[in-house]
């Protein structure tokens, strides 16, 4: 392979140095202590998940198969957006850099997002959306039960409020999964396909890292693995009634909680953040 001498000329190196001097890197910001950082991270994981899923669900508004469903699904999206405001609001407070929930939602790039990958999966057909909602709700419900007992009262308070909303989300999505699974041949097939397609995105919900371990040790958030039993129980119950097969495999796509996302998130953000990015500093 021929070398690329012009990339390495002293002039270029010099140019780069001068350019770098003209634009100093961001002044070093004071780092919160490790414990606060883990809490910040945990709050992003929850708040980003509700944000991105709420965004996805809101895409249905005006396009659902029946007016009643359109209204019901918008209620779910509204709850999730409301919860996002609380979780990201608290995240900003914990971070202590003066960032608001909106700053966090609209001014971070994909690699700083911490949502579960399942939340950013495209909507697919209505059955796919409902199955994603059910799998998420069943986990979300367990998570909030754990968070409601948090040693951090701010976390416990938000979880208690969100928990009531999510209990209803789960009731509704379970019901629809049962009905469509045990409906027509076509609805059954579509629900099974959705379950199979989404299954590899569920394992991530229960994978912990050192930040999760730290949160669990301090009683702030439950250990992700501990949510599995309750989730499994809900799934067994609902999917059996729905006459759907729980997939065998246990392969899990992961990375969302660490900021390594699917290609879809970039497009969600490009759309969601458009105005804030195109008109920096404007107030809306």
């Amino acid at each position: 392979m021929p070398s690329l001498p012009d990339m390495n000329t002293p002039e270029v190196a010099d140019l780069a140095r001068r350019e770098a001097d003209a634009h100093p890197a961001h002044p070093t910001v004071p780092q919160p202590d490790a414990g606060q950082e883990a809490l910040f991270e945990t709050l992003l994981r929850i708040g980003d998940s509700t944000l991105i899923l709420g965004h996805r669900v809101s895409e249905w508004c005006g396009h659902s198969p029946a007016l009643e469903e359109d209204i019901a699904l918008a209620n779910v999206a509204l709850d999730l957006i409301g919860q996002t405001q609380l979780w990201l609001g608290l995240a900003g407070e914990v971070e202590g850099q003066g960032r608001s929930a909106d700053d966090l939602a609209y001014l971070r790039d994909a690699w700083d997002f911490r949502n579960l990958l399942i939340c950013e999966r495209p909507n697919g057909d209505f059955g796919h959306t409902l199955m994603r909602q059910f799998l998420f709700d069943a986990w979300h419900h367990e998570l909030l039960k754990g968070l409601a007992a948090s040693s951090d009262p701010r976390v416990a308070e938000i979880a208690a409020k969100a928990g009531k909303e999510v209990a209803y989300h789960l009731e509704r999505s379970s019901d629809l999964v049962v009905r469509l699974g045990d409906g027509t041949e076509e609805s059954h097939r579509r629900m099974q396909e959705a379950l199979d397609a989404l299954w590899p995105y569920t394992g991530e919900m229960f994978l912990g890292d050192d930040k999760d371990a730290d949160m669990a040790a301090r009683g702030i958030a439950p250990d992700p693995a501990s949510l599995r039993a309750g989730w499994d129980e809900t799934l067994r119950h609902v999917l059996t009634e729905a006459t759907l097969q729980i997939p065998e495999g246990d392969f899990a796509h992961k990375g969302g909680k660490q900021g390594i996302h699917t290609e879809h998130l970039g497009y969600i953000l490009a759309e969601m953040q458009f105005l804030q990015r195109a008109y920096p500093g404007a107030s809306w």
């Binding site: 029946a66 007016l67 009643e68 209204i71 019901a72 209620n75 009731e171 509704r172 019901d175 009905r179």
Partner: peptide
């Protein structure tokens, strides 16, 4: 009023609507 396939769903839809 509203539309629903059965009574249980009608209750849920009524809550949402």
């Amino acid at each position: 009023s509203l539309h629903a396939p059965d009574a249980e769903m009608a209750i849920m839809n009524a809550r949402d609507v």
